[in-house]
Amino acid sequence: MLESDFKSVNKDIKVLLKDAQALFNSAASLTGEKADEMRARGMKMVDAAMAMTHDAQVSVVATGKQMAVSTDTYVKEHPWSTIGVAATVGMLVGLLCCRKS
C-alpha cells in the first residue's frame, strides 16, 4: 500500500512539473498581463509539487522511524535469534563471495 502511494505521488509530481514547464515555455513568448498570469499559474503548480514532495518526505521519515523502532524492539526481545540470522546471512555472503568460478 505504501509503495503504491509513493508511485502515485511521484507520477503526480512529474505531471505537475511537466505542465508547469509547458506553461513557462509558452509564457516566455508572451508579454504583458497574459504572461504574468501564466507565470503565476506555473508557480502555483511548482508550489503544489513542492508541497507534495514535502508531504511524501514526512511520510517516508515517519515510516522509517516506525520501522527502526519496531526493529529495535524485536532485536531486544529476541537477541539470540537475531544473532543466528545475522551469522547465517554473513556466512552465506562469505560463501558467495569466496566461491570459485
Rank of each mutant, 00 (worst) to 15 (best):
89 V>W: 02
52 M>D: 13
92 L>D: 04
79 P>Y: 07
15 V>P: 00
86 A>R: 10
41 R>A: 10
88 T>W: 10
54 H>S: 14
28 A>G: 01
50 M>R: 13
9 V>G: 04
76 K>V: 01
95 L>G: 03
92 L>H: 03
10 N>F: 03
47 D>G: 07
50 M>K: 15
75 V>W: 00
93 V>M: 07
3 E>A: 09
28 A>R: 15
57 Q>W: 06
45 M>H: 09
67 M>T: 12
29 S>I: 02
41 R>T: 04
23 L>Q: 03
28 A>I: 02
38 M>Y: 13
72 D>Q: 12
61 V>F: 07
9 V>Y: 08
69 V>H: 11
45 M>F: 04
8 S>V: 02
80 W>N: 07
5 D>Y: 13
54 H>A: 11
3 E>K: 06
14 K>V: 00
56 A>S: 11
67 M>R: 12
56 A>H: 06
73 T>F: 05
41 R>N: 11
8 S>I: 01
58 V>W: 01
45 M>D: 07
33 E>N: 07
96 L>M: 09
63 T>Q: 09
59 S>R: 15
68 A>K: 10
9 V>I: 13
9 V>Q: 11
3 E>C: 02
33 E>S: 06
19 D>P: 00
35 A>Y: 06
1 M>V: 08
99 R>A: 09
66 Q>E: 05
84 G>H: 02
11 K>H: 12
76 K>C: 02
55 D>Y: 03
55 D>L: 11
66 Q>A: 12
53 T>S: 15
20 A>T: 05
33 E>A: 10
14 K>N: 08
27 A>P: 04
20 A>S: 14
78 H>T: 10
89 V>M: 13
27 A>S: 15
4 S>K: 12
36 D>N: 13
40 A>V: 03
88 T>G: 14
51 A>T: 13
35 A>P: 00
47 D>L: 08
68 A>I: 03
86 A>S: 13
18 K>P: 00
47 D>C: 01
84 G>W: 03
13 I>Y: 02
10 N>L: 11
64 G>P: 10
95 L>H: 05
64 G>C: 15
95 L>A: 10
38 M>I: 13
19 D>M: 09
100 K>G: 06
95 L>T: 01
83 I>Y: 02
59 S>G: 10
76 K>M: 07
14 K>C: 08
55 D>F: 05
62 A>M: 13
50 M>D: 10
70 S>F: 02
21 Q>M: 14
38 M>Q: 15
76 K>P: 00
88 T>M: 14
79 P>T: 11
12 D>S: 11
24 F>N: 12
60 V>Y: 12
42 G>A: 14
99 R>T: 01
80 W>F: 06
85 V>F: 06
10 N>M: 04
46 V>G: 01
76 K>T: 08
99 R>I: 08
44 K>F: 03
35 A>I: 04
81 S>K: 10
39 R>P: 02
62 A>S: 13
60 V>D: 06
5 D>G: 06
20 A>V: 04
100 K>T: 09
71 T>Q: 05
31 T>M: 01
75 V>H: 01
70 S>E: 14
65 K>I: 04
17 L>V: 15
49 A>L: 07
97 C>W: 05
58 V>H: 04
34 K>E: 15
34 K>M: 14
74 Y>L: 09
12 D>E: 13
97 C>K: 15
82 T>A: 10
42 G>R: 09
23 L>T: 01
27 A>G: 10
95 L>P: 00
92 L>A: 13
59 S>E: 12
34 K>H: 11
37 E>C: 00
53 T>Y: 09
